[in-house]
Design a protein around this nucleic acid. Structure first.
Lengths: 199, 199, 199, 199
DNA sequence: GATGAATGAGCCTTCATTCAT
DNA sequence: GATGAATGAAGGCTCATTCAT
């Protein structure tokens, strides 16, 4: 990786962290200068069209972090019911994460994007959220096919339920700075999975 | 009501609507001028200390709208299990509302406040969220006492679960501009209530 | 005096005090509202053309306070040399005054007016300063005529010297909040008067 | 000197001139934009924290101009009595100055700072005034030690007297736009120095 | 590749003033 | 005589962005 590419990645990493804490619109280019230690021009050299371009790159990076973590976990967890539970656990990891503080970037961005209808982030965050929903849906569908999940389970409903409650739980725990709210959601999802989803 | 009070209320109403759509920090005083039809000074006459004061008043108003709606519904719905279901239905009403578009003001504000740690809105939104959680918790507790809810139910977990999933569901439906996401959450909560909570 | 006139005088008194402390341009109409306890309209009823009109009235009042005090003192002090000394003492009284805090209104206004060349206050403060200078000059001239002051004394120079050093002394004492600076000026003027002016 | 430094110095020079004429609070950033030919951001790039920071830098510069002029004069004037007289002459130079119009920045600022008690300029102007007073005091003290000034002279009183009357004289001459007032003060100080201070 | 000087639109707020009540 | 609702210009400041070096 060339020095330029390294700098670019560093900018993305730092920007993703700040954006996730203070929002895309709450973060100024000056904040990013401070975090990266670069001057104005140094950043614009890598993101010629400015803050939006950087925001997209940072969001993609932030989402890839949680995606990769999911992928890693799923390498060792193969039963559909266990995967559903593990899916939730990864949200908890993210909440405590020091690499990307600020909770789930997908939800954070979703709320902000909603307030800026034409913004390019809107499409990106929709795609990311769809990927999250699809992941749960596919776990359930495959689980049904494999006989790991009860056949009458509605995959779409479970997907909406898992993602909604986990995102909401992260929000509550951040609001009160108290991980117990997300923990209660996880407890409930685990119990529900064991008692009503596992075949 | 004096003309000044009327104007003040009108400003709050309009501001609450804009804030809920575009966020407290995404909304400029110029936006509020446009919506209210007043000039700069006309707004500052009513909110001497500026945008923050208006933001607090608008948030209180926005929260009172959903609170009042809850109160109204609970006048006719008295069984705890029915109240839990009705609680969720009110979120759906809010999502479609034309008076206060933009979904649930408590969650919207929670996300924004999180990015502005010292801001006075933080305490306000915590109080509001606590009120929401307490409402569910008390419905469950009273329901258990009255024999309407299964006695082994954990009120705190149900509260966290209901609020998290409903807020998350609103977020999903707003993101895709598609009410089905929240509907799936509501379906799941109703089914869960009927099958596992109702005594 | 009618109630309207009484209110008018009250406004002038309060305004003069605030103006003398914070300057004509450093004082807002809101400050004057606070001090007088009146609302906007209440003040504009009495000073139809606004802040400038009030500023002129307040300056006239402030200057009359020191003028009247001079007149009072000169009723009992008749020797020219004593009057010169008494002239200085009145400046010290003004510095400590609680009725009109802020030191000599003539100098305060002179500095401010200087920064606002076209302002109506400029002429007013020139007239007031001329009255102060003339007062000293006439004391000296009459003193020479009566044989109380040495005949070779230059009245204009003494006038410039007394007024300059007293105004400057007030300024120093206010700057350090320490009356000793003005006191040193007074000591020097007294000694100079006794040793070189008194016939 | 880099281009940035040059611009910064230029801003300070222009700002000092405007401030000294129209006061720190009577001068708007728009005025400074006009004088410097820079846009808003161009000025804030050099004075990140805004008008106050610029005000302090400008005051320091303005004071250094008169300080430097004093130092220059004192290189060729060594007798204490002559230095006292020269001290006064420099005030006259400043009054006529085209580089820094508006008279003595120390007094101008002292009056304004007095109206803004908490302002950072207050301390700065006190230090500057103390430097002026100390300069006279030390001239006298050294003069006594060297036998150039009469030994019974009170250095503190002379310092207060010189500074007060010169500042007051500048004020009078500015008020009337007539240098004779300051001239009379200078005449008196010279005569006093020759007749009563010179050993 | 990186610097940092400069731009100019936009933000929140304060102010003196007017006028219907 | 007095109130206070409303105006609109002006103030200080921040921001994303450009570009010569």
């Amino acid at each position: 990786m060339s020095k330029g590419e390294e700098t670019r990645e560093m900018i993305i990493r730092e920007a993703a962290a700040v954006f996730n804490r203070f929002g895309y619109f709450g973060t100024s280019m000056a904040d990013i200068m401070r975090e990266t230690g670069l001057e104005k021009g140094g950043i614009y050299n890598h993101f010629r069209s400015g803050k939006d371009e950087l925001a997209l790159a940072a969001f993609d990076y932030a989402f890839s972090v949680s995606s990769n973590r999911m992928g890693e976990v799923f390498k060792t967890v193969r039963h559909a019911a266990d995967r559903l539970i593990a899916f939730g656990e990864v949200f908890k990891e993210l909440l405590d994460d020091r690499v990307l503080p600020g909770g789930c970037p997908v939800m954070n961005t979703a709320i902000e994007a909603d307030a800026h209808p034409g913004h390019p982030l809107v499409n990106r965050v929709r795609e990311a959220m769809t990927a999250q929903l699809d992941m749960v849906q596919r776990i359930v569908e495959k689980g049904i096919a494999r006989g790991e999940i009860k056949p009458e389970t509605d995959a779409q409903t479970i997907a909406a339920m898992f993602v909604s409650s986990l995102e909401g739980g992260v929000m509550l725990s951040k609001l009160y700075n108290d991980s117990r709210y997300l923990q209660r959601v996880l407890d409930h999802l685990r119990e529900h999975t064991e008692m009503h989803l596992r075949a």
